[in-house]
Amino acid sequence: MLTSLLESLDVEELLTATYETFYMTIIALIGTFVFGTLLGLLLYLTDKGGIWQNKVINLIVASFVNVFRAIPFIILILLLFPFTDFLMGTIRGPNGALPALIIGAAPFYGRLVEIALKEVDKGVVEAAQSMGAKTRTIIFRVLLPESMPALMSGLTVTAIALIGYTAMAGAIGAGGLGSYAYYSGFQRRDFELVFICSVVIVIIVFLFQFLGDYISSKLDKR
């Protein structure tokens, strides 16, 4: 069975698809990290008792996060077509998928960031304040470093969700393994190809999980 599997396989196409999946996942992950951290910080800092306590801003950010988390990803892509077209000049290919991927994942990661920040000992923040630290110093030298292991494991969870999103995006033309499995596999009744794509995706997921766990444990000095 294995030989027949490999015979029918166009290795070059598979590699391209794998590359596209990696490309979408990693670029979207970077964007998600930046925007999600921003959202998480905003949620945390404007919350009751926070350094920038502000009901209105907190409500706006929380609503944004909740709304975009509520929309199923496949619908979000469709919804964002005009925006994507305006921003990227295309709605197809890996680049066309990026805005939806980031907008879909950042609110999710933002909540994880908020939870991670809430775990930071209030006493440590207070100690920094008692030394005369600016808010910027507290964010970059206390809150983020102290919550880094949780931020990393949150990022791992998000990365794996993103891999799933890229496959969904693939089904409507974004490229990558999802696209390959759907168009070259499923639609041509080549279920072996669908199987191979699944195996590759599982390997990628495990890879991210392993890497994330490893970095997270290295960072954790508690």
């Binding site: 000992d121 006493g123 440590v124 207070e126 100690a127 206390v142 470093p145 102290e146 880094m148 960072l219 000095k221 508690r222």
Partner: peptide
């Protein structure tokens, strides 16, 4: 409770 930064 000392309030040290455990990451440092």
């Amino acid at each position: 409770h000392f309030n040290l930064l455990w990451s440092r």
